[in-house]
Design a binder for these strands. Structure first.
Length: 270
DNA sequence: GACAACCTGACC
DNA sequence: GGTCAGGTTGTC
């Protein structure tokens, strides 16, 4: 599913529902390449109390009372879903977590790219150490400086690089560039300091606006109640190749840049 | 940088 | 049959 606004929406819901609760039971339906842990996983989590659910970049951190953690990445199609007792698992469900008070949480993942893994508090710190600053927390100056250091790459590639700035993905990279009036194919070293500042300003704004809408359900993102976000209705270029630009009416172009589908307006973005 | 890989499904 | 999909990682 997810970029920062979607993962943060899920984090808040998870925290509200399971913080303070103990994992009583785990059923594993599908393991997969990223989860060879198999037998070790269940005893590593069952009986442990969750202090809360945190987020760093697109990673969910299920923090146990002793500061060890279960790290979760949804990749493209991962979902957490709270379900009733009579819920029947589907073919894409990977695990069921049963918490205190009959709270039942499904982890499903159609494409099986995601992972859950248990780490110590040090292990969590190490696993998350390489990420760039959180765009909703860092200052504009900090964020602009991060872009400057990435030199001659395409700006689109730099925005997608989690070690430069954490949490931006394909949707918000395209939307930020449109709002800033910058073509995705420009190289970072060719941007003026004014453009870098404008771009990170729009990164912050678009992420905050999407978060306020509980994220974007452009493909199959849903929250832990199975509900869609609302920001797909406010996208200006992502997924709109061939359609008219909302500003100038000329067709939005779709190209491949940084190996990802990339959408921009030839006329509004220089 | 580009590219393949990890996987499944939807759509043309 | 081919192409595409909110991600990441490891190869040339």
């Amino acid at each position: 599913m997810p970029e920062l606004p979607e993962v943060e929406t899920v984090r808040r819901q998870l925290h509200d529902r399971i913080a303070g609760k103990t994992i009583r039971e785990v059923l594993v339906f599908k393991t997969g390449r990223e989860m060879p842990i198999g037998k070790k996983f269940i005893p590593a989590v069952v009986g442990r109390r969750l202090k809360g659910v945190e987020r760093r970049a697109k990673v969910l951190i299920f923090r146990f009372a002793d500061d060890d953690a279960m790290l979760g990445h949804l990749k493209m199609t991962g979902k957490f879903l709270f379900v009733d007792e009579d819920y029947v698992p589907t073919k894409h469900d990977r695990m069921l977590f049963v918490f205190d008070g009959k709270t039942r949480m499904i982890w499903s993942d159609i494409r099986m790219f995601g992972y859950l893994k248990v780490v110590t508090s040090d292990g969590a710190r190490e696993a998350l150490a390489h990420y760039g600053p959180e765009p909703l927390e860092a200052t504009l100056e900090e964020l602009a400086e991060r872009l400057k250091s990435t030199s001659r790459r395409l700006i689109k590639a730099a925005l997608l690089d989690q070690t430069v700035i954490a949490g931006i993905g394909n949707i918000y990279a395209d939307e930020s560039l449109f709002r800033a009036g910058i073509r995705p194919t420009r190289t970072v070293d060719k941007l003026t300091s004014d453009e870098r500042l404008r771009l990170v300003t729009e990164v912050k704004k678009v992420l905050a606006e999407s978060l306020a809408q509980n994220g974007t359900s452009a493909n199959d993102y849903i929250d832990t109640d199975g509900k869609k976000g609302g920001f797909q209705n406010l996208l200006k270029v992502y997924g709109r190749g061939g359609e008219a630009c909302v500003v100038c009416d000329r067709p939005i172009k779709r190209i491949v840049a940084a190996q990802r589908g990339t959408h921009y307006c030839v006329s509004c973005q220089k």
